[in-house]
Structures are given as C-alpha cells and as structure tokens.
Design a protein around this nucleic acid. Structure first.
Lengths: 111, 111
DNA sequence: ACGAGTGTTCGATGGGAAGCGAACACTGAC
DNA sequence: GTCAGTGTTCGCTTCCCATCGAACACTCGT
C-alpha cells in the first residue's frame, strides 16, 4: 500500500543509532566512499546529486556505494525532480560515533 | 648485519603516525580483529600471548590478523621465550586517530 | 639431542565485495 | 507522446581477503 501516486520509491534510510560499529567502519573503509563523504562535507546540504561526484566508477557502482552509505547512516537522500540529492548526516552520525567522521574528513586529501 | 645470535626475527612494526586512515579503518573493520583489540584492552600490557585469545579461527589466520594489527599501528609485539606477547598501543594510536579506539572499545560486546 | 609448545609461512580454497554493461523505471521538457 | 537525463537493478566477471591444513622455525624443558 503506501502512496502509489506514481512517485518513485523513497530510498531506505538507516538512522546512525541503529548502525553497528562494524558497519560504520566497513562503510568508511573504502577509497571511493571516503571521497564521496569528503566532497559531501564540503558542499551544502541537498546541493549534490549522485552523479555530480568526481569518482572513477560507473553509475552502477556509484549507486551501490550510496546504498552502503545510506545503510551506515552516513547519508540522507531525497528525490528532487529527476535527480536524487544528498546530505551528509553530520550531527547525527557524530552523536553516534563521536570523532569518527572528523577523523575521515581532516585527513590528507592527496595520498 | 643485525644480530644473528640465533634469535627469532623481530616482528615488523608500523608506528600509528605512519598509518593512513584507510588502513586503520580497514584493520578495525573485521569481527575477529575487533575481539582481539577489545580483549587486549582489558588485559595488562605484555600479558597476553597470541594463542591466548578466544576467537574461532586457527593459528594461521590468527597470525595473519596480528600482522594486520601491527601494520595498522594498533599492536606491539615482543618475543618472550617461545611465545609472542602483545600490547595495545593505546596512547600512540589515540594520538594519531583521536576517538577511534574508544569507539571500538566502548561498544556492545554482544551483538 | 629430543620432544612439546608456540608462531610463522606456504599453497590452495571459498566467499564476498567491487566493478562493468545493458536493460529498466521515473521525471521533466519539448 | 516522445525524448534526454538520471538512478536503480540484474547478471556476470574479477579480485581481494579470510580461512584452513601442512610444513617449517624457534625456545625451553628434560
């Protein structure tokens, strides 16, 4: 049931509070996803669509990475017209895993 | 070169300062290694030999896990007679990755 | 010198995750 | 309605990592 107004199925979200540490760590232990999180942190909420990130992977893989980030409570998504815009759940994630996000963000951008 | 007194080759260590974030995260993103770190945190330095941990893996895998932990700057090892005793590099790791270790330690022991 | 206890290394196996291309679904503009 | 743009899903391949068993190395008793 739920609304069948022709809208696209809303993405499933997981709140950081419901995320095990291992899931959070695994989500962040990937080069591509780290880039996504960093770029997201440098942008305003709801300003970046999924396709607007500078990562060397195709659409399919990208979609998968965002699913992982959602599942780890790191990213919130909202449908805005044809595209899906993102927001880093900074405060919520920080409340659940103090210091973790900061750690990933304030790190060597260039390896 | 180096002492050839018949001693076993000392294990290679990596200082936390030389460890990339990704390596640290990847090292902690494993159930077995998390248990090792937690048990190690609850024990005094140099009191636990490699074989004294309650993890459901064989010696070979265990040895590998400790190598990973060493490579991530999480564990220091010293040969003591026939066994290899361990120490969690708590303060050094905490200085390099503030909050990370605490995060892993103060978490649901039972999933 | 021998044997028990402890760890490491080697080779092989299995499973899971990341990647791609193609096909499909939805939105908005024309 | 049709088309271009955007993302998801599906099937498949590839690669990496965790694991095991067996063999080897070292230390310490006896």
């Amino acid at each position: 049931m739920a609304q069948r107004t022709g809208h696209r199925a809303a993405p499933e979200h997981t709140h950081p509070d419901d995320v095990p540490v291992l899931t959070a760590l695994a989500a962040l232990a990937d080069p591509v996803r780290i880039v996504l999180v960093r770029e997201l942190a440098d942008s305003g909420d709801w300003t970046r669509s999924c396709g607007s990130f500078d990562v060397p992977v195709g659409k399919a893989a990208l979609s998968h990475h965002f699913a992982v980030l959602r599942g780890a409570g790191l990213v919130e998504q909202r449908d805005e017209g044809p595209r899906r815009v993102n927001r880093l759940r900074r405060s919520e994630f920080e409340a659940r895993f103090p210091g973790l996000l900061e750690l990933v963000l304030r790190e060597e951008p260039t390896v």
